[in-house]
């Protein structure tokens, strides 16, 4: 059923003059898998995608589709479909001709073009507006048309560059599910670029987290959440982000200013203690803290407290939120703590 191929990046590097956009990237995507490239703006996600598509030539390294080395190939010989962040529909053509464009270039006979464009458009729910031009349809419909254009030639690899970031919040959620469903049904190998960690965690089988052109961690959403490899990933994945406290591990505890936490099996030396906002609790006992800000989110609220000079975010249920300026006590969980060394690398617990 799966018609996707595996995608393997080997020591992939791209420099623009003195800027290193992507550095020494090694990564493999399994056939039929959906992988998200996640990272802040300018970290090299698009550049990587364009190297896979064949638009950019790597400065060094190779790209393989299955056993086939494709980095010397022209984009048209690679069999990829791509959705651009701007959708990049051709404004002078109708949606029908937009979607038909890849087939026309392949000189597919007219009848078959018609059939395949219709079928793909139906699949995406835009069968009724094919005679319109891009400017005459909504953003969501443009996004679908762009997706249809990428899928119509039944590519082995589907590349999606922030396909949802121009949609409004409501459609975005349904579009997430829709893309995931399509990708599973078609069995195409897909790479999704996003800077929205929630999107990456919700959609992807595995997530590659980038920072400054370097791969930080490549793992399943669960792994990223429970065992972030370094402080960058810890701070980037999860919303609100993990609290990080700089201090010193003493073997049997953690010390930072007046804060002292007894820990089992703690490492030694300076480093960072990480704890997610949803794992901290405001309780009857624990460390004294003062509430600075309360941000209601609906069902939950983010409470920002000051604790021995550290600012911590705590996620509490709506009914349990304290008043601003209240004196509270904050309890650290026994599990779900993360230890990082002074360079930010994860050192425990196992």
């Amino acid at each position: 059923m799966s018609r996707g191929t595996s995608v393997r990046l080997q020591n992939l590097t791209k420099r623009f003059g003195r800027v290193v956009a992507v550095r020494d990237l090694d990564l493999e995507v399994n056939p039929g898998e959906l992988v998200a490239f996640l990272g802040p703006s300018g970290c090299g996600k698009t550049t990587t995608l364009l190297m896979i598509a064949g638009i950019y030539r790597p400065t060094a390294g190779h790209v393989y589709f299955g056993d086939r080395r494709v980095d010397p190939l022209h984009p048209r010989d690679r069999d990829v479909g791509m959705v651009f962040q701007s959708y990049a529909l051709y404004p002078h053509l109708t949606l029908f001709e937009n979607i038909a464009f890849p087939l026309r270039l392949k000189r597919v006979p007219g009848e078959e073009v018609k059939r395949r464009v219709k079928a793909t458009a139906e699949l995406l729910g835009i069968g009724g507006i094919l005679e319109r031009r891009p400017a005459q349809v909504s953003g969501g419909q443009q996004q679908r048309a762009a997706l249809a254009r990428a899928l119509v030639k039944e590519p082995q690899v589907l590349l999606l560059d922030e396909p949802l970031s121009n949609l409004d919040a409501q459609i975005r959620l349904s579009a997430r599910a829709e893309i995931r469903r399509l990708q599973r049904e078609l069995g195409v190998t897909a790479i999704l670029v996003t800077h929205d960690q929630a999107e990456a965690l919700a959609m992807a089988d595995r997530v590659a987290v980038f920072s400054m052109g370097e791969l930080q961690q490549y793992a399943t959403p669960e792994e990223l959440y429970h065992r972030p490899k370094n402080t960058f990933v810890a701070g980037f994945v999860g919303s609100p982000p993990m609290n990080l406290i700089e201090g010193e591990f003493t073997g049997d505890g953690f010390r930072s200013g007046e804060l002292r936490l007894p820990l089992r099996q703690a490492p030694l030396g300076r480093g960072w203690l990480g704890v997610r906002p949803e794992h901290l609790r405001i309780a009857g006992e624990g460390h004294p803290a003062r509430v600075l800000v309360v941000e209601p989110l609906g069902r939950e609220a983010i409470v920002i407290v000051e604790l021995f000079g550290h600012r911590l975010q705590i996620l509490v249920a709506e009914g349990e939120k304290p008043a601003p300026d209240a004196e509270v006590r904050v309890a650290f969980p026994a599990r779900a703590l993360h230890y990082f060394d002074a360079n930010g690398r994860r050192i425990g617990p196992e």
Binding site: L50, A53, G54, I55, H74, P75, R76, V80, G81, M82, F84, Q85, S86, A88, L89, Y90, F101, P102, L105, K106, R149, K153, L159
Partner: peptide, 23 residues
């Protein structure tokens, strides 16, 4: 013109020459 449009055409299977004439 946006670069995206031309990149899209290349990925869609166009040669540089086709991109010029058709896009």
């Amino acid at each position: 013109l946006s670069w995206d449009m031309e990149m899209a055409a290349l990925v869609d299977g166009a040669s540089r020459w086709t991109v010029f004439w058709r896009v």
